[in-house]
Amino acid sequence: MAALVLPFGISLAENPPGEKEQQRYTWRNAPRHSSGVAPDPAAHADQAVVMVMAADTFGWRGYFAVHPWIIYKRPGETSYTRYDVVGWGGGNVIRRNYAIYDGLWFGSKPKVMVDHRGEDAEALIDQVEAAVKSYPFPREYRSYPGPNSNTFIAHIGREVPGLNLDMPANAIGKDYRPISNPVGLSSSGQGIQANLLGVFGFSLGLEEGIELNLLGLNFGIDFNRPALRLPSVGRLGMDSVAAEKADQVKADEVAFEPNS
């Protein structure tokens, strides 16, 4: 009980319900403008970029889960291509350019999980596009236990290990595997995983550390960047390498921005 209640309490403390009520967002009026976490594509037209980001889901679900997506651009392009899975609307749940590339997700600011630029990013883009096409659940969606938006990004991580994707513990659905294929690569593409329908199993890898999945809730320890991996919270400890790198790049861009 403590393992379940404590992470939820931390999540509440970080984002008190009173603040959400004061904003009184609905699906219609929740802000979805650019968050500024991705480099401006026009200003970086000569550079390839691949990023994965995630934001708290809308409403009360934001205390438990995140919604992720992937964006990329090739050198010479002045706009991003964005892919994520969205459950409402029917038909194919894989959406291309559904929203602004780094926009707030119905009021929630995204955090960077993957940030590759230059030649490294350019080498990944064809693999990412192939992974999007090979997603095995393009017409299925279940918020719990999956397949959902986290299942989609985890699939890309498995198919493109060069992303070095480290999905947080509160990415519910990332561990979803059909009962016919319970064992395989973890969402980083660099570890191993055994799981039944996203509700019971484990993952072990350099990026994930050791993680146990019980009823879709994940508990674990990250030894690579020391941290606890907890439901509701996601990560408690040192930031992931991608988040730290994105913060540093953004700080460098601001520092060298010419005076107006």
Rank of each mutant, 00 (worst) to 15 (best):
L4G: 05
V5C: 10
P7T: 07
F8W: 14
S11N: 12
A13V: 08
N15A: 15
K20I: 06
K20H: 13
E21Q: 10
E21H: 03
Q22H: 10
Q23A: 15
W27Y: 13
R28A: 15
N29S: 14
P31T: 15
S35V: 10
G36Y: 06
A45H: 05
M53T: 11
D56M: 08
T57L: 12
T57P: 01
G59M: 06
G59Q: 11
V66D: 13
H67R: 07
P68E: 03
Y72M: 05
K73D: 01
K73Q: 02
P75Y: 01
T78R: 14
T81Y: 04
R82P: 07
G87W: 04
G89M: 06
G91W: 01
R95Q: 15
N97C: 12
Y101I: 01
G103M: 09
F106I: 13
G107F: 13
K109I: 12
V114R: 13
D115C: 03
G118Y: 03
A123H: 02
L124K: 05
I125V: 07
D126A: 15
D126T: 15
Q127L: 13
V128I: 15
V128W: 06
A130E: 14
A130D: 13
A131W: 04
A131M: 03
Y135W: 03
Y135P: 06
R139V: 07
E140L: 08
P147V: 10
N148M: 05
N148D: 04
S149N: 11
T151F: 03
I153L: 14
I153E: 05
A154T: 09
H155E: 07
H155R: 09
H155Q: 11
R158V: 02
G162V: 05
L163Q: 04
L165Y: 08
D166L: 05
D166C: 04
P168D: 11
A171Y: 04
I172A: 06
K174Y: 01
D175P: 00
R177A: 05
R177F: 01
P178L: 12
V183K: 04
G184A: 05
L185S: 12
L196E: 01
G198S: 13
V199D: 04
V199I: 15
F202V: 09
L204I: 11
G209F: 02
G209C: 03
I210N: 04
L212I: 12
N213T: 07
L215G: 12
G216V: 08
N218R: 15
N218E: 14
G220I: 01
D222Q: 11
F223R: 06
N224V: 00
N224Q: 10
R229G: 04
L230T: 08
V233K: 05
S240Y: 02
A243G: 12
Q248M: 08
D252A: 10
V254S: 03
V254G: 00
A255P: 01
F256M: 10
